[in-house]
């Protein structure tokens, strides 16, 4: 026999799956506690197809913990996680150190992400590298490529899984400001190309605002969320990041040219999203 609580939960799940076709995953009212510390408190999050959602917050706010819950690496102490059945996740981790003693080319690195041999054709890998604008790195050892190329190669590995959902943990770290803008533009472009949902983590406030549809401001709990323009005016946001953050307008950037991976100037591509 079903208790009333179980009944209501079942109907909630049914309602969620009927409600929104574009929903990829939902985290509802999730709390995570480690030993003595509560890292996440009643956090909720919905990722939809074709949308970019960015988690911002100070260091130690629980951003990576929430990402680990989304990825299924961590079971929350409390709350529910719903994933669309058969959801394919492409993940770009924050830190990936490759020991100097491991001889590994970019191609081999990308191949390691493919579980089935059928897909491991070189054409497939080259296509993914071209998609992220790092086609020149194919045969290079991983340890010799630049910070920007490294992030692009990581992104290519996530893309090779043909994801419905891309989870990017600090995707622009170790990249100079010009490169960061280009990388955010690339991420937005990928979203429109393959129509996946993107969940991004960032502690940067300035550049990321222009590159996202929704901002979720996290400090153990969700302080505020919504459109970036709105969030930057929210009192909770101002309290968390100070007045200085308010003076930084949402960064907009208009290109009349672009740079290829070697830094040379080339004409701006036609399909670029104006921001």
């Amino acid at each position: 026999m079903m208790s009333p609580v179980e009944t209501s939960r079942t109907s909630l799940v049914v309602a969620m799956s009927e409600n929104n076709v574009g929903k990829l995953m939902t985290v509802s009212d999730v709390s995570v506690c480690f030993a003595e510390r509560t890292v996440l408190e009643h956090a909720s999050l919905t990722v939809e197809r074709g949308k970019i959602i960015t988690l911002i917050g100070p260091n130690g706010a629980g951003k990576t913990t929430l990402v680990r819950v989304v990825l299924g690496l961590l079971k929350p102490t409390q709350g529910d996680v719903w994933r669309r059945p058969g959801l394919r996740i492409g993940y770009m981790p924050q830190r990936l150190h490759i020991d100097a003693s491991l001889p590994l080319s970019v191609e081999r690195f990308l191949r390691l992400g493919l579980r089935s041999k059928a897909k491991a054709s070189q054409a497939h890998i080259k296509k993914a590298l071209k998609q992220v604008g790092a086609e020149g790195t194919l045969t290079l050892p991983m340890q010799t490529i630049s910070g920007g190329e490294w992030q692009r190669v990581l992104l290519a590995r996530a893309l090779l899984r043909e994801p419905d959902l891309l989870v990017l943990d600090e995707p622009v770290q170790g990249v100079d400001v010009g490169g960061q803008v280009a990388l955010y533009e690339l991420i937005a472009q990928i979203r429109s190309q393959i129509g996946c949902g993107i969940l991004m983590v960032s502690h940067d406030l300035h550049l990321v605002m222009a590159a996202t549809d929704t901002v979720v401001c996290l400090n153990h709990h969700v302080c505020c969320s919504g459109h970036p323009e709105a969030v930057t005016k929210d009192p909770a946001y101002l309290e968390l990041f100070g007045e200085e953050a308010a003076r930084l307008a949402v960064y907009t950037h208009r290109h009349d040219h672009a740079h290829d991976i070697m830094g040379a100037v080339k004409p701006a591509s036609e399909d670029k999203r104006e921001v």
Binding site: L73, P93, L96, L104, L112
Partner: peptide
């Protein structure tokens, strides 16, 4: 090899 590079990435990829 995949686990040597990044355990959590490998886990997300189904290892």
């Amino acid at each position: 090899l995949a686990v040597t590079l990044h355990e959590e990435l490998a886990q997300v990829e189904g290892v």
